[in-house]
Design a protein around this nucleic acid. Structure first.
Length: 580
RNA sequence: GGCCCCGUAGCUCAGGGGAUAGAGCGGCCGCCUCCUAAGCGGCAGGUCGAUGGUUCGAAUCCAUCCGGGGUCACCA
């Protein structure tokens, strides 16, 4: 039940009546008509801009239009008052019963309250993390992992068929480096001195891989040329790294549906097929790129390469897909990978990438646009940096110096719930400060505890009520007479609950899971506020002497709890039962 | 130099065509014999980076500029 959508439908219905009555011309575009909560509650419960938006195209005085609309909406039994205000807003005040219906709906639908049909089952592929399989995940990956997972959950809740996918970059030179690094650890496991040369991965995490290689190969590979072992070790070490990465993701409660391999695109004709598809559209040609404008690199020299005419689809410059020696650039398998996603039948693609991939956005969108004939939209969400702080000091991370903060470090210190919530309490395109001291403090500085506390308070009320012999199952509460809920503080909470389905759709449309976190904070605030009103006004406490009165108030609290828990589920955070 | 992101209260950030721009922290003043005070109420604090433009209406859209960050051809 989305009350805002329902009232909007009533507004549209009234406008159509006016068209039928000849008060408005036929064929008006109604998309811009909105029904929203006004910024100032004094203006009412909902406001519509219909008169202002339609006055000009209809050629009607906005005041006349608004008055007519107000009279018609006033007959709706859910609307107590419809009045024209300000520059032409139509402010609506709903009867208390409308809000009580929302509370009932929340209790009846439970965790599914707010679930939307917005996506209409459209298939969406969310690709995220895709960390190189060369070591454990570090803090830099955490935000993208949490964001992608929450976005996927949000889209699922909004009615999309979602696939969570990880693209394994196992085709490039970095896995050769990994294999050579693992080889040195293998030699070490056999009692030899490892030669961790400059450019190899020095991390301790490869020591167990060396041991495993010894167990598998014994001493057979020692002093053998690279050509003998490179391919095998690449596969072995990559698999070991992916096992580690899966375990790291599990610590954050992130679980992928599909792992796709870059390597699997080579030698199978997939890259060739993707490039051929572009070539068929005349988008592949041999040519020489202009040097970058303004600042030409010292060693710039013109080169003839195979280029993708990405400028035909909005890019600033055409992009090479083959190097001058004929081998593929990194871009070619990426094109093939996205082509594969299109061919698997997805209606929408989303890539979650680090902000350092900004320069990559236009070319990838161009490729997807060309390969799907403009059918499949690609949204690329760039995740800004996380700056680590510890006790007010910037916490520097350097692979070389060995001060390497892993995902595991973060989760083991802060916990998955806190980590996830904090990472999601910010827009993806704004940088995020992550202060260990503050996050570990478990104080009110930390919004996750504030929201958790609200949920715990609801659970506490339910426990107390049950002890007092009041029936508080969701089924019982959903059938309770709610007419006792009439105080403005109680209705304020019900109104916030009513915003939840609308908020879900806004967040899903914009691919903005952070809106869920901010909404939950506001909902928690309303609950805490009502709770404290009970200190001064005993009639506002949830537990009353009379069981029936208690049930109505508890139904409201429980409805808030239902929404908090549904929202936290999208964020991947466990709701707290109690905070002791 | 090109492209992308950011610029809103002392600090950290929401709001991204709508009415008098919000929250947390920090500061000041209050609230526990009462469902958990990890909470609540109040006060102070703003030329929404700047200038033009579009619009009935701009923090929001467009242009230019100024700050900050990222990125820029055989690395993925």
């Amino acid at each position: 039940m989305n009350l805002f959508a329902e009232i909007r439908a009533a507004v549209i219905g009234a406008l159509e009546e006016m068209q039928a009555a000849g008060a408005l011309p036929a064929g008006l575009a109604m998309e811009a008509v909105a029904v929203e909560p006004p910024r100032d509650p004094a203006h009412g419960d909902m406001a519509t801009n219909a008169a202002m938006v339609l006055a000009k195209p209809a050629g009607v005085n906005p005041r006349v239009l608004a008055d007519d609309l107000a009279a018609r909406l006033g007959r709706d039994r859910r609307i107590a008052l419809a009045e024209v205000a300000g520059p032409g807003f139509l402010n609506l005040r709903l009867v208390p019963g409308a809000w009580r219906e929302v509370v009932k709906a929340a209790l009846a639908k439970g965790p599914d309250f707010g679930r939307s049909a917005l996506g209409a089952g459209a298939r969406v592929n969310v690709e995220f993390v895709s960390a190189n399989p060369t070591g454990p995940m570090h803090v830099g990956h955490v935000r993208g992992a949490v964001f992608g997972d929450a976005l996927a959950a949000l889209l699922d809740f909004a009615g999309y068929a979602v696939t969570r996918e990880y693209y394994i970059n196992d085709g490039g030179a970095q896995v050769d480096v990994l294999a050579r690094s693992a080889y040195e650890r293998y030699r070490e496991a056999n009692g030899l001195e490892p030669e961790i040369r400059e450019g190899l991965y020095p991390g301790d995490y490869l020591i167990p891989v060396g041991e495993a290689l010894k167990a598998k190969y014994g001493t057979r590979l020692i002093d053998q040329p690279e050509a003998v072992w490179l391919a095998d070790l690449r596969a072995f070490a990559t698999e070991a790294m992916m096992a580690m990465i899966r375990a790291d993701l599990a610590l954050l409660n992130v679980h992928m549906d599909v792992f796709s391999s870059e390597k699997a695109l080579y030698g199978t004709g997939k890259i060739e097929a993707a490039i051929a598809a572009l070539r068929a559209q005349g988008l592949i040609y041999e040519g020489t790129l202009e040097p970058p404008k303004g600042k030409t690199p010292e060693d710039w020299e013109p080169r003839v390469q195979t280029l993708f005419r990405s400028t035909a689809h909005g890019d600033d410059q055409d992009r090479p897909v083959q190097k001058s020696d004929g081998s593929w650039t990194y871009f070619a398998p990426d094109i093939a990978y996205h082509y594969d996603k299109i061919q698997r039948g997805f209606d929408q693609l989303i890539d979650v990438l680090g902000a350092d991939h900004g320069g990559y956005v236009k070319r990838m969108k161009a490729a997807v646009s060309a390969l799907s004939g403009g059918r499949v939209p690609l949204d690329i969400k760039l995740i800004q940096l996380v700056k680590l702080w510890k006790n007010g000091e910037p916490f520097k991370m350097s692979k070389r110096a060995g001060t390497f903060v892993t995902l595991r470090d973060v989760v083991e210190q802060a916990g998955a719930d806190v980590t996830r919530f904090v990472m999601l309490t910010r827009k993806n395109d704004a940088a995020l400060d992550f202060d260990f001291a503050r996050v570990l403090e478990q104080s009110k500085d930390n919004p996750v505890f504030y929201v958790q506390y609200a949920h715990a308070r609801v659970r506490s009320v339910l426990r107390k009520a049950a002890e007092a012999g009041i029936e508080v199952t969701d089924a019982a509460l959903a059938g309770v007479d709610l007419s006792g809920l009439s105080h403005e503080a109680e209705l304020a909470l019900a109104k916030r609950i009513a915003e939840w389905p609308r908020l879900v759709e806004i967040a899903a449309r914009g691919h903005e899971p952070h809106r869920i976190a901010f909404y939950l904070y506001e909902l928690a605030s309303d609950l805490h506020s009502l709770w404290n009103r009970g200190n001064d006004e005993p009639s506002l406490r949830f537990l009353q002497a009379d069981a029936a009165t208690s049930q109505a108030k508890i139904a409201l609290a429980r409805a808030a709890g239902v929404v908090i828990s549904a929202g936290l589920a999208i964020l991947g955070v466990t709701p707290a039962e109690e905070m002791r």
